[in-house]
């Protein structure tokens, strides 16, 4: 994909800013105790992602990326957070997210993960052009941070948020590092996330019906003795 010199001058710093925002949001999610805010943060991540895709579309002039950006905005920034919001109200889950580890410790682990991700991405970054330098590392870090969030939370909803955040990270890696994937792949990824979301949504109701709570601790009883 060719990018004009003018685009390079202002587009790439902007893309880097968006990447930094994504990472920041991932850290914010890791630090967040309240479920409602967590969903808001997820929505913001979706917005950043859509903005990133739109930026790439503008820079490279690929029209199909505009569709992708619109889809991302609709799906990840609006639809899924709204549904999660309604779920939260219908299931009447409130209060704090109970973390397995305390927040500062989790954040420290997160920093370690970011360093690990960057060291991993170093060889890949060396191969790519100056445009995408650092993007892969940031995206990988976002994925790992989301994974860490899934591990350290007890409520089922925060697991779903973590799952969607992983997806966001992957998506960002794909668009920023390669400057746009084929449409079909993006559609597939989006559909995948949606289906995963639906399945987990059904799962929530099942968990709640069985245990009368959304706490995953209850699942510990169902194992072979």
């Amino acid at each position: 994909m060719t990018i004009t010199a003018q685009g390079l001058a202002w587009g790439i710093p902007l893309l880097r800013l968006l990447a930094a925002l994504l990472l920041l949001l991932a850290f914010a999610m890791l630090a967040q105790r309240r479920l409602l805010t967590l969903i808001h943060l997820l929505a913001w991540q979706g917005v950043v992602l859509a903005a990133g895709t739109a930026l790439v579309a503008l820079l490279t002039g690929q029209t199909e990326l505009w569709f992708s950006a619109a889809l991302t905005l609709g799906l990840k920034a609006i639809l899924i957070p709204t549904v999660l919001h309604r779920l939260l109200r219908r299931l009447q889950v409130h209060g704090d997210v109970e973390a397995v580890l305390n927040i500062p410790l989790t954040l420290l682990a997160g920093i370690a993960l970011v360093i690990f991700a960057f060291s991993l991405a170093a060889p890949i970054t060396a191969l790519t052009g100056p445009v995408t330098r650092g993007m892969v590392g940031i995206a990988l870090a976002a994925v790992l941070l989301a994974f860490l969030m899934m591990i350290t939370r007890r409520k089922a909803i925060s697991q779903v948020v973590g799952f969607l955040a992983i997806d966001n990270g992957l998506f960002f890696a794909a668009t920023s590092a390669t400057l746009g994937m084929p449409m079909i792949v993006e559609l597939g990824v989006a559909l995948d996330a949606l289906i995963g979301f639906v399945i987990l949504g059904v799962f929530f109701f099942q968990i709640r019906e069985t245990f009368d709570s959304m706490d995953l601790q209850n699942l510990e009883h169902i194992r072979e003795e």
Binding site: V100, F116, F147, M150, I151, Q159, L219, H221, E224
Partner: peptide, 24 residues
């Protein structure tokens, strides 16, 4: 098999990290 989803996620997370570290 402890029944804790957190732990299962930790298994896959650690596996991922180790695999990434080994085959970088």
């Amino acid at each position: 098999q402890q029944g804790r989803i957190t732990l299962y996620l930790l298994y896959s997370f650690l596996t991922l990290l180790i695999l990434l570290a080994v085959w970088r």
